[in-house]
């Protein structure tokens, strides 16, 4: 059962991304996306270890995390398309998708920026006496951001119940991890006394097992754990590359990277009829999501700054009234 659920999540994200890329090409999704194809096992395994009341923060490559936490694919696709019924009313788009009702505190477009946010949320949840936990998803590119290392320190000091999930897909845009990271990702966490574990990020079962242990430790008050989940980014850094073709990795390398496919890793664990039933269900669900997004109304331009503030400005700014004063009128003595 758990295997079927994990497969369903991986396939859901795979199918969502395929359709999202098509919608980018069709001009329905403005601005492009950062597809997470190839990395679905991380989202599936980690979110399967969470309760509905746990919280997560995500990244610019975050569709998988948001969907795995339970977001409605139709409203998610509508968000990518910038439509009013989208998760964020079309105000966030691909890089900021959020669903607070499900504990998705938002995808974040600044590399590493959400790590201290997740850790701060975790600290506050523990302080309130609950056993809820937070997960910070981030990429290998984030481990060279100072604020991430500051957050490791503070999370460890304050025993924040946060699971630090580093998705190492081998590249920070075009830069290889080996060219960017002195020392190691695990070593960064261990330097702060944070237990750190390398995980096969293409195997949903392995991710679930590691995440379950880290979550249990956090719930019990043991503080943060880092999981470095290695996977290969099958698609571009951003759909922009589909036309620009910057060519920083060879076809042979890409083929080798794709050889270990989380969809097949998990699919092989299911009876063929179970797998095809899930595929059929998802095809219907995701086709409907695309239809929903295509047909969803655009936001009214008059509402462009709705929600700029949670507490509206008081008083509402009043335009200066036009009351012409005759030039030098009052200087006449």
């Amino acid at each position: 059962m758990a295997d079927a659920e994990l497969y369903r999540t991986v396939a859901l994200v795979r199918g969502f991304e395929r359709r999202a890329v098509e919608l980018v090409r069709a001009g329905v999704v403005p601005g492009g996306i950062h597809p997470c194809t190839g990395q679905e096992a991380v989202a599936a395994g980690v979110c399967a270890a969470l309760r509905p009341d746990d919280v997560v923060t995500s990244t610019h490559r975050g569709h998988g995390h948001v969907l795995a936490k339970g977001a409605d694919p139709a409203r998610m696709m509508a968000e990518l398309a910038g439509r009013e019924p989208g998760l964020n009313r079309g105000r966030g788009g691909s890089m900021h998708a959020a669903d607070f009702a499900l504990g998705v505190l938002g995808a974040n477009a600044m590399v590493g920026a959400a790590v201290p946010i997740a850790a701060g949320a975790a600290w506050a949840l523990r302080r309130a006496g609950s056993d809820r936990v937070a997960v910070a998803f981030f990429g290998d590119g984030a481990v060279n951001q100072g604020v991430v290392l500051e957050a490791f320190n503070l999370a460890a000091l304050w025993r924040a119940p946060v699971v630090l999930v580093c998705e190492n897909n081998g590249f920070a845009t075009s830069m290889r991890t080996a060219d960017a990271v002195a020392g190691s990702i695990l070593g960064r966490a261990r330097a702060f006394g944070i237990p750190a574990l390398a995980v096969d990020g293409t195997d949903p079962r392995a991710v679930l097992a590691a995440a379950s242990a880290a979550v249990a430790r956090a719930r019990a008050g043991g503080g943060p754990t880092l999981l470095e989940c290695a996977a290969y980014r099958f698609d571009a850094h951003h759909t922009w590359e589909h036309t620009a073709r910057p060519g920083y990795r060879s076809a042979a390398e890409e083929a080798a990277g794709r050889a270990r496919d989380p969809l097949e890793v998990q699919g092989a664990r299911l009876a063929p009829e179970v797998r095809s039933a899930i595929d059929a269900e998802l095809d219907e669900l995701l086709d409907a999501a695309v239809e929903f997004a295509r047909g969803a109304p655009h936001p009214d331009p008059a509402s462009a700054l709705d929600h700029l503030y949670a507490t509206p400005l008081v008083p509402v700014p009043v335009p200066v009234p036009v009351e012409p004063v005759p030039l030098h009128a009052t200087e006449v003595g």
């Binding site: 201290p116 997740a118 949320a121």
Partner: peptide, 14 residues
Amino acid sequence: QAFTSFATGAALVG
């Protein structure tokens, strides 16, 4: 930088 965003995270959960 970290404690400023810790505050953001704590605020997001109440």
